[in-house]
Measured scan of single mutants.
Amino acid sequence: MEVRTIKVFTTVDNINLHTQVVDMSMTYGQQFGPTYLDGADVTKIKPHNSHEGKTFYVLPNDDTLRVEAFEYYHTTDPSFLGRYMSALNHTKKWKYPQVNGLTSIKWADNNCYLATALLTLQQIELKFNPPALQDAYYRARAGEAANFCALILAYCNKTVGELGDVRETMSYLFQHANLDSCKRVLNVVCKTCGQQQTTLKGVEAVMYMGTLSYEQFKKGVQIPCTCGKQATKYLVQQESPFVMMSAPPAQYELKHGTFTCASEYTGNYQCGHYKHITSKETLYCIDGALLTKSSEYKGPITDVFYKENSYTTTIK
C-alpha cells in the first residue's frame, strides 16, 4: 500500500517557510505537534488534498525554529505562539472599519479597549522592536488589523473576551517599542525636605499616572512627601515624541487643539466601556464603527496623549 502524501510549508514567522512532505494517514499533531492554519487549530486533523502548498504555523520545537521565533517575536515564552494563534482565530472574524481616516474595530468580545489602543497607536510616533509587531502594525494602518490585535493580546497575556485596560495595554506595548531616546527629568520640591531631581528613561519617561493635564504637570502637581507634608512635583525636561497622561476616570474637559487623542471610560472596574476622542479640525468621538463630532467635550476621561518633541522648564 502506497503512502499518500502532500507537500506543505511549516513556519513560526510566515517569513521562513520549511518544506514538509506530510503523510495523509496521520494527523498534523502526530507529525508536527500543535499546528495552526489561519489561526485555526488543526492539530487533530489529517492532511487533505486542499492543504497542498498551504502554510501551517507550528510551535518552535527545534533550534532553527526557536531562533526564527525569537528573532521575529522577541520572546522565548513557549506558550506565546499558541496564544497568538488562538487569538487570531477570533480577531480574523472582527470587522476593521476605516473611521475618520483611522483603522478602528467594530465592537465584539469586549474589544473596546483594543480599538482605543489601536486608534491611539496610529496617532503617536512609535516604532516597535519585534519585527512581528512592526509588520502587523503597518498592515493594521492599511486596514488589516487582525494579526496586530492578536499579537497585542498575546504580548499582554490576554484572551479574547476578557476586559482590558488601555493604560495597561499601552504599557505592555511600550515595553516592546523603541523608547531608548526618551528621557524625563522631574523635580520634587518640599518646604521641609528641599528639592530632589529624578531622571527617568524609556517607558517611565512617557507615562504618568495622577493627572490628565500635561500643562498642569509642567506647572506642578501636589504629591505627598515622605515627611508627610505636601510637596510639588513638576516637569523639568521632556525628550520624547509623545507623552501619555493618565488618571482614574473623572469628568474632564478636553479643549480642541490642546491634545492629540484621549480615552474615555464609562462604567466601573468590573464592567465598563471605552471610547476614543481625537482632536482634528474639530473633536471626534470614535466608538467602534461609530463616529460623532463636537466642538467641545466633557466626560469621564482616563488617558490623554500629547505630541511632544523637546521641553525644558522655565521655572527657576
Rank of each mutant, 00 (worst) to 15 (best):
V58A: 07
P224F: 09
T199I: 12
S279G: 04
K44T: 13
V67S: 14
Y234I: 10
C156K: 01
V185L: 08
L37M: 13
F174N: 02
F242M: 06
V12I: 15
S79H: 04
F259L: 05
H48W: 15
V58I: 15
F148H: 01
H51K: 02
K298R: 09
E144D: 12
V3T: 12
A250D: 09
D41V: 14
L290Y: 12
Y57S: 05
A40N: 10
L121Q: 00
E239S: 13
V203R: 11
S50A: 12
E144N: 14
T232H: 06
Y28L: 05
E68S: 05
Q270S: 15
L126M: 14
W107T: 15
N129V: 10
L126T: 07
Y96R: 00
A247W: 04
N49K: 09
Y252I: 11
L119D: 06
E168N: 02
T64F: 10
G288H: 04
V185G: 05
T10G: 05
V166K: 01
S295W: 13
L290I: 11
Q196D: 05
R141Y: 03
K275I: 03
N178D: 13
K46F: 12
Q216I: 04
K298E: 11
C156W: 01
A205N: 05
K275P: 07
Q30M: 15
V243R: 05
L200M: 09
H276P: 02
T76C: 14
T11F: 06
A177R: 01
K46T: 15
S295G: 13
K106I: 07
K54C: 14
F305T: 06
M245D: 07
L235M: 02
A177N: 00
L290Q: 15
Y96P: 06
G101L: 01
V236N: 06
A117V: 15
H276S: 05
A205C: 03
A117Q: 06
N110H: 07
C193M: 02
E162Y: 04
D165E: 10
Q238T: 04
H276C: 05
L133Y: 01
H176W: 13
Y284M: 10
K316T: 13
V166A: 14
V58M: 07
Y265G: 08
V21T: 13
C261M: 04
L65R: 10
K92E: 02
Q238N: 05
Y269N: 14
I301H: 15
E239P: 05
T313G: 11
Q222K: 13
N111Y: 00
P249M: 07
I277S: 04
L81H: 14
Y252V: 08
F80D: 00
F217Y: 06
A150N: 01
G202C: 06
Q98N: 09
Y297Q: 04
L133C: 01
V243P: 07
V166M: 15
A115W: 01
G220W: 05
Y234F: 10
M24A: 10
S263Y: 03
A40E: 13
G202P: 03
T76N: 04
Q222I: 13
Y284C: 13
C271G: 13
Q251D: 04
Y72M: 14
V21N: 12
T192G: 12
H256F: 11
K93P: 12
L163Q: 14
V221Y: 06
A247L: 04
L235G: 02
Y214Q: 06
Y137S: 03
T312Y: 13
Q251R: 08
K92R: 11
L179Y: 05
E204I: 05
R4W: 12
I105R: 03
A140H: 02
G228P: 04
W107D: 15
T116A: 09
Q222A: 10
A108Q: 11
Q122Y: 01
Q238H: 03
K255Q: 13
G288V: 01
Y113E: 05
C285W: 00
N100F: 06
T103R: 07
E253G: 05
A87V: 06
D109E: 13
V236A: 08
C225W: 02
N129I: 08
G288N: 14
G194H: 05
G210D: 06
E264S: 15
Y284T: 07
Q122V: 02
G210I: 15
H276G: 06
L119E: 08
K229Q: 09
S240R: 04
C225L: 02
K54Y: 12
A146F: 02
K106A: 15
T76Q: 12
A69C: 10
Q230T: 13
Y306Q: 06
N14W: 01
R66L: 11
V166L: 11
Y138H: 14
Q251A: 12
Y306R: 05
G257F: 01
D109C: 02
R184N: 04
V67L: 11
P224Y: 12
E264M: 05
H48K: 15
L114W: 01
P131T: 02
K219D: 11
F128N: 01
F242S: 08
L37N: 11
F259G: 06
S213R: 05
L126A: 05
N268P: 15
V203P: 14
F128R: 01
S295P: 13
Q196G: 07
Q216G: 10
D77P: 00
P131W: 04
A145G: 07
F70T: 04
H74P: 00
C285Y: 08
L153R: 01
R4K: 13
Q270V: 04
T278R: 08
L163G: 15
M245H: 00
A69R: 02
K280D: 00
V221L: 08
D23E: 13
I286Y: 08
Q20M: 09
K191A: 12
